[in-house]
C-alpha cells in the first residue's frame, strides 16, 4: 500500500519526532557533553551546552582515579565468559528441543522460563553464603557462573526460536544428499544457525554487561565490573562529574552500539518469542 503522505503532515511529525527523541536521549547526550568539560564547567550555572573548552583530559585520566581498565576487563570477561559458557550449554539443548521435540519439550521450556522469573533477591542469602564458603566472593569465576545461570533460560529460548525456524526438511534434504551428521552441521546447519546464535550472543552480552544486582553485591574490588565501579562514584567523594561522565560514556558506548544493532533480536529475546 503506497499512499501519498502530504509533506506538511510529514514535517509536523518530523518536528514532534525529533523533539521527543532528543528529549529522551538528552541524559546520554548531556553525559557525553559533560565528559569533555573541566570539573568547573561541569557544575557551572548556567550550564554551557556546546561553547566550552572541549578537553580530552577526563578520558585520559579516567584510569588514574579508579583503575578503570581493570574494571573494564572484568566487565568484558564476565559478560563474554558467561555468554560463551551459556551458549556452550544451551546450543545442544535448544538444538535437541527444536529438532527432536517430544511431548515434554514444551514443559521443559516452560520450566526453564519459570526459573528466570525467580527474583534474584529471593536467593540472595544462600548465594552469598555459598560464595563466602567456597571462596567465590569477589571473583570473576563466581560472577561468570551466576550470570550464566541467570541468563541460561533466555539463551535457550532465543536459540530455540531461531532453530525452530530452520525447516527440518532442509536437514533431511542434506541427509538424503549423502551428508553425514558432521557435514550436515558444517555445511547446512551452521550457516543457517549462525545468525541466530550471533543475535543471542549479542543480546546476552548486553544483559550481562548491564546486570547490576549480583555484580554489585557479590564483588568488592578485585572482580568488580564497570557496573560496580560506577556505583562507587555514588559516595560523596566521587562527585567529579566530568570524570564520572567520561567513565560512564566508556562504560555504555560499546553496549549502546551493540544494542542499536540488535533492536529486533532484543524484542524477540526479551519477550521469549511472544512478540516478533
Amino acid at each position: 500500500m503506497a499512499r501519498t503522505v502530504t509533506t506538511n503532515r510529514k514535517l509536523v511529525f518530523t518536528v514532534i519526532g525529533w523533539a521527543i527523541g532528543l528529549t529522551l536521549f538528552f541524559p546520554i547526550l548531556w553525559t557525553f557533553l559533560t565528559s569533555f568539560k573541566t570539573e568547573g564547567e561541569a557544575i557551572a550555572t548556567p550550564p554551557s551546552f556546546l561553547f566550552f573548552d572541549w578537553t580530552l583530559e577526563n578520558y585520559l585520566t579516567v584510569n588514574d582515579r579508579s583503575d578503570y581498565f581493570r574494571h573494564a576487563i572484568n566487565s568484558v570477561v564476565i559478560s563474554l565468559g558467561s555468554t560463551a559458557l551459556g551458549l556452550l550449554v544451551a546450543i545442544p539443548a535448544a538444538w535437541s528441543m527444536a529438532f527432536t521435540p517430544t511431548k515434554r519439550t514444551k514443559d521443559i521450556l516452560m520450566w526453564m522460563l519459570s526459573t528466570k522469573m525467580l527474583p534474584a533477591v529471593g536467593v540472595l542469602v544462600p548465594i552469598t553464603l555459598i560464595f563466602r564458603d567456597t571462596g567465590l566472593m569477589d571473583t570473576r569465576t563466581g560472577l561468570v557462573i551466576v550470570l550464566m545461570l541467570m541468563n541460561l533460560p533466555i539463551i535457550v529460548w532465543m536459540l530455540f526460536t531461531y532453530f525452530k525456524e530452520i525447516p527440518g526438511e532442509i536437514l533431511e534434504a542434506a541427509r538424503m544428499d549423502g551428508a553425514t551428521l558432521g557435514k550436515e552441521i558444517i555445511y547446512v546447519l551452521a550457516p543457517m544457525a549462525v545468525p541466530g546464535i550471533a543475535s543471542t550472543l549479542l543480546l546476552n552480552i548486553i544483559l550481562a554487561w548491564n546486570e547490576a544486582f549480583w555484580t554489585v553485591l557479590l564483588t568488592t574490588n578485585n572482580a568488580a565490573p564497570l557496573t560496580a565501579m560506577i556505583a562507587q562514584y555514588s559516595s560523596p567523594e566521587g562527585l567529579f562529574w566530568s570524570k564520572l561522565s567520561a567513565a560512564s560514556m566508556l562504560a555504555i558506548a560499546p553496549i549502546l552500539v551493540m544494542g542499536w544493532f540488535s533492536q529486533k533480536q532484543l524484542v524477540r529475546g526479551l519477550t521469549f518469542g511472544a512478540v516478533k
Binding site: 525447516p167 526438511e169 532442509i170 533431511e172 534434504a173 542434506a174 541427509r175 538424503m176 544428499d177 549423502g178 551428508a179 553425514t180 555445511y187 547446512v188 550457516p191 543457517m192
Partner: peptide
C-alpha cells in the same frame, strides 16, 4: 538415508538458502 542412493524432492523444496543454485545442485 545417505547410503540408500535415493534422491528426494521435498514439498517445501528444502533448498539450502545460503548456497547459490550451483552449490545447491552440486551439494550431493
Amino acid at each position: 538415508p545417505a547410503r540408500r542412493k535415493l534422491s528426494m524432492v521435498f514439498q517445501s523444496y528444502a533448498l539450502y538458502p545460503h548456497m547459490s543454485v550451483y552449490k545447491n545442485i552440486a551439494f550431493p
